[in-house]
Amino acid sequence: MPLIRAENITKNYRVGDMEVPALKGVSFEIGEGAFAAFVGPSGSGKSTLLNLLGCLDHPTSGTLTVNGTDIATLSRSAAASFRGEHLGFIFQDFNLVPVLSVYENIEYPLLMVRGWSPEKRRERVLKVIDAVGMNEQAHKRPDQISGGQKQRVAVARALVGEPKLVLADEPTANLDHDTAYRILGLMKTMRDNFGTSFIFSTHDPKIMGEAELTFTLEDGRLVQEGGAA
């Protein structure tokens, strides 16, 4: 069974009195352990699709299952639980909590969302923090580390809860070229080490070449699916 199955997904937004379609009947499947990218120009529907996969929004019509759960009908609270249990997020602007240290930012999902015991938390956080190479910065605050390091912390935070799927919206957009490649390399390594699927969006042709599977979107439609472009 695929990790993600999308069947004829549509999403309309209401702008004033008008219905504006953002996705127009998108269907695809993604298996476990994928390293996939949604690519396309700005306004093509990449972020909308990622939001739907992340249970942050509901499709207007169509069926969307992630890890066997129909996420299109989840309530607000159930969606939050699903995100906490099965998904990880990486954001373009890193979105670390500024008052928490690197260690605490990574620990947050286990402490405040999953409610793991201190021993279990510590063991898992140390494992992930080691995997992303942030041991020496563990006690620093986000404003004391570089952009690349912040994104490493964000990757660690996304992975710490052992999710099935990590969604990354333009994860390299705010990083220089070398750092962007290092982050993508890290994400791949994490996929290999932890078996977590990664889906990211990008409009950078060089970055999209790093994906093993690409879905090209144009004007809300899936126009191409396949290996690296």
């Binding site: 609270s77 939050a80 995100r83 906490g84 954001f91 979105n95 935070r157």
Partner: peptide, 16 residues
């Protein structure tokens, strides 16, 4: 607001 969005996205329940 963005921080709230982040915490909500990573699974923090509205009650929390």
């Amino acid at each position: 607001i963005r921080e709230i969005g982040t915490l909500a996205a990573i699974g923090t329940q509205p009650g929390k």
